[in-house]
Amino acid sequence: MKRQFKLLFLVMILGASFVSNGWAGSKKSADKVRIGVEGAYPPFSEVGKDGKMKGFDIDISYALCKEMGAECTLVKQDWDGIIPALLAKKYDAIIASMSITEKRKKKVAFTIKYYITPAKFVRKKGSGIEITKAGMKGKSVGVQSATIHDNYITGVYGKDVTIKRYGKQDEAYLDMKAGRIDLLLADSIALDDGFLKKPGGDAYEFVGPDLTEKKYFGEGAGIAIRKEDTELAGRFNKAIKAIRANGTYDKIQKKYFKFDIYGK
């Protein structure tokens, strides 16, 4: 008797797994898109107090999916594994403020940009640090590892400064507040909303010019797709243009910014 139950149980499990596999398989190819997001990059992407993802990237993701008529699921993934996980098919697209750069293009394909903002340095008020090779000599600069900002500081000031690389932008903010680093380099909007305007941020200020050098900072933030998924890239491109045209994009960005971050 016991054995029979066991057998029945096994059959049920097997049956259930077949059914669910078949179902997921057919659905996914039709209109299910899984999107990789980061969740540690306010105001673009963060985990809200209720544990849900929120931010500009998240709203844009949902808007694009609605425009494409696709059913989306968001998958949270740490930054340093965000491209490998795309290639490993953990999700189908990355919407995580990822700048379109030549280096990344070797691994993944990009849509057209969905926004572009300059990068900037932040210093402590009264520290008097100037953004020149001489002024930054011996200072430590915090950046998020493997970002365009990391590439820039490594490429331009690598010999003059100590670079502290963090897995998450939030951790760099913590260490700046703790006084372990002298400068932050990141996206100006992210710094403004995620750091300067947060409690305790008023002791810090922007310094130096807007940084937009194409060699390092690329062509703006785009959506990364696996190279073979050209059809999905096309759908995203169409959707980006559509939400720009029909006012959805403006509605979303008004929630977060006072000006148009789409750029020219």
Binding site: W79, D80, I83, P84, L87, R104, S145, A146, R165
Partner: peptide, 22 residues
């Protein structure tokens, strides 16, 4: 390697994130 010290794992993490070669 998670608190900005570059040890063996830290080096691997930097190389991985720069070249996407885990």
């Amino acid at each position: 390697s998670l608190i900005t010290i570059i040890d063996i794992t830290g080096a691997a993490r930097i190389v991985n994130s720069r070249y996407y070669g885990p």
